[in-house]
Amino acid sequence: MVGIVGYGAYLPRYRIKAETIARQWGADAEAIKRGLQLTEKTVPGQDEDTITISVEAARGAIQRAQIDPQEIGAVYIGSESHPYAVKPSGTVLIDALGIGPHVHVATNEFACKAGSEAMYVAYSHVKSGEMKYALGIGADTSQGAPGDALEYSASAGGAAFIMGTERVAAEILFTHSYTSDTPDFWRREGEFYPRHAGRFTGDPAYFKHIVGAGQALLEKSKLAPKDFTHAVFHMPNGKFPQEAGRRLGFTKQQLEFGWIVPLMGNTYSGSSPTGLAAILDVANPGDLIFMVSFGSGAGSDGFVYRVTEEIKAIKDRAPKVRSMLDNGKIYLDYGQYTKHRHKIKLNE
């Protein structure tokens, strides 16, 4: 049996409300909240980035797995906001958590699906028998240009998953990936903010790939949507994952626990992985979980998980997603937000 033996998530304490952003640009806050189906988003602290978020999420994963970090043979961090252009984020993480130095470390990039990509590669290493444990992380401090629709959703957070074969809490039964050349969202080298193709990001991009991967995964697994207790999809806003679920045949109830975007925003590479962590926080043995990520460019990774008895032993060993979403929030005004997000040009 190969699957998740430990998981952890991390969300910063800082928040900004949709109203606060809308007020700055003279936009209609109620229309935006209704359209995007989100009310606020997480914002990284001035001392937080993809590396610190990954470290805290992975610390939770190790606490839950209760393994010797030295036994982890590979570490992959998927993000589109790695702090260094040249120097892998994982090099800092392994020294912070006592992993390695005998470990394979790499950085994954594939827009918002870099996290599920890291999870897939970690899972594949363990499945092949190459190593006992591998760590896959999705984390981001997402960028959205001031005044752009993305500014209401681009947020910060991430989740980490240790794959192994012993004391598995969520067995991975099936995977499927679906990829094509689709110019829906991109950021050119040297550009600070990403660009997107407006409505083209919907049907030809997000829905085509999520539904494409999802349908293939259902066929491969010979399972029907009604067989699943939970489902989670990439969450660029509140509306898209609900619609993707509807098109694949899932109900709102199946999406309920993983649909954390209204209070979290879009954590890009951390989006569906953090939704999965929120589901594992409440999952019961025997539950089937359906997950499909999406990364612009574009592609989707799908996973079918079966929760085991081990989940009961591990889920209370580290902070839960809902607790981080609901507690200890510090709200920012727009000026503080621009400082946190380094949107103000300063002299050296």
Binding site: D47, D49, I51, T52, V55, E56, R59
Partner: peptide
Amino acid sequence: LVFRKIQEDGKAGILCYGYK
């Protein structure tokens, strides 16, 4: 104590992490 960025060595230098 948690893991955070402590300082940056200017705009192009190394990022320094540690405990806060």
